[in-house]
Design a protein around this nucleic acid. Sequence first.
DNA 1: TTGTAGGCGTTATCAC
DNA 2: GTGATAACGCCTACAA
Lengths: 329, 329
Amino acid sequence: MARTTMEDVAKAAGVSRALVSLAYRNASGVSESTRARILSTGNQIGYVHNRIAASLASTKPASIGVFLQDLHNDFFADVYDGIREIAEPKARQLVLSVGSRNHDRDASSLGTLEGAQVGTIIAAGLRMADSDALAHSQRTPLIAIARHIPGVDSVYSDNVFGGQLATEHLLQLGHRRIVFLANPPTDGYLGRREGYETSMLEAGLKPRVIESTYARSDAAEIATELLADTEAPTAIFAHNDQAALGVLDALAARSLVPGQDVSVIGYDNSSVSNTPGTALTSIDLHALELGREATRLALRRFENPDLEPQLVTSTPSLVLRATTGPVST
Amino acid sequence: MARTTMEDVAKAAGVSRALVSLAYRNASGVSESTRARILSTGNQIGYVHNRIAASLASTKPASIGVFLQDLHNDFFADVYDGIREIAEPKARQLVLSVGSRNHDRDASSLGTLEGAQVGTIIAAGLRMADSDALAHSQRTPLIAIARHIPGVDSVYSDNVFGGQLATEHLLQLGHRRIVFLANPPTDGYLGRREGYETSMLEAGLKPRVIESTYARSDAAEIATELLADTEAPTAIFAHNDQAALGVLDALAARSLVPGQDVSVIGYDNSSVSNTPGTALTSIDLHALELGREATRLALRRFENPDLEPQLVTSTPSLVLRATTGPVST
DNA sequence: TTGTAGGCGTTATCAC
DNA sequence: GTGATAACGCCTACAA
């Protein structure tokens, strides 16, 4: 059976095909009553608006591409909620693309979105160099979330400040041997590390940075080694909540109590960090708001593609929970 | 500037447009060397294969639609991983659609996928009546995950068995006042409740079912009321992990220790349940495998659309953690 | 391998 | 509001 088309709807409703088209786009030029009639008869004969054909024929792209690094990280779910909240009322279709475990494939994820002819791409957690992202944005406008890419629309969260916030919180609790579990250096969130180092140096302490990944298990392994050390840290600052959970795993395995024996602070304030029993102290990125702002930027760029690169800055805040406490004597 | 098309690539590479088309679909009829040459020149002049146009022109749909109920629930992320694992090597593009907070909109989520002209839809966590899902599957083949819809391809997990598994675990620990925090009756996962009731009746006990939602906060509220009761339950079986977390929230607020003061068991064995400190006892649905099987069904249906409705059954298992323990005297 | 003709289901435009 | 026609960028089929 051939798919039912607008032609069929037009015949069934006794109107022209052009009118059906207008009705389904709820464009002006159709009276509300006939619009309703058309849609209902379309519904009856089982017609669904073919977005593929529509998108091909339309001169201007209508959809927004969304890249999310990882579906297992609640932070990105929050971001998505924020995006949807703004995009939906504007009838902008969202096309999703999810990152893979290995960084290199983020580029092909963006390629998928380009292939879907999205007008703009909102990218949360993109793991590629600034220069590559910039190159991509030349083809399809990009909007970076939680990161500032020069020349690219960015909804930035002040990572340096966040890094300082976390570090100074630990310093005030009396910690001196504070380790930073760093994110991979490719990902553009280097500010967190910078903030950590700045605060440590200002306090006259020597920073100790150990590189980790996004995998919780990797963080757990590293933490296990750290804790076995004679110079074991009294506090660990993880580059994100996922990694912090890994650290907590390691503590649990040694029956150490977070916040008492060792302090742990994460970054993102994702929902898991608020799990009862976990109660992870974290830096709140305000993910929802980041998503909203990015979408507002995207809409603005639809209207005016030649706008200067936009920059929105958001300031993270400290969320105190149970995993940080005074240094144990 | 007009988008670069296959025409441009053909000119630049000095070949015919038809050959470029074959090259990008990596179909046969192009030698490996010229294929490589075409792709590289295409890359140089900034061409991206327009999937929209391709999909419109192609007679057979190539993409798989994926509906995920909730990005905040890690279970669905696991399912997605399983889907991708199978779909990617087959070069099947995945089109995602995420459910909204209110159930009624699941239908329109499916509509979005149909509009994208997917050949098949894998739906995880669909909240609609069997009859509605069946009607939908008439238009675009549907594959239901973790649920059996008569007449629709289903990768089913034995919910009745899972419900019994959870209940009997609690019974063996000596619990008698066991409450089931039920899922909304519309969602097709009623087997969990049925299993609970069966096991309770077999043990000569009176089932006590209280209806809840998918929201963690709702579960927390209900649990708070329950615990204040004079006939407070000694164990609570929640219809999924999200709801179980809500129960744990309620316990934490009253400084009750899960597994000691009150036992709590969830359902899904999502990654959060494995969070250190949470350690939620749960029923494992084997999400990853569910996703894999669903995708295998989808591929099979692409090959043979007239297949009888397929049914794959998977058996859940109990994962013991810290939130269940012997009834306190 | 090439070239060409035809079509996929819409949108865009214009005269009516 | 109606028709009719020309795109949109690609796939399909076929003849060369």
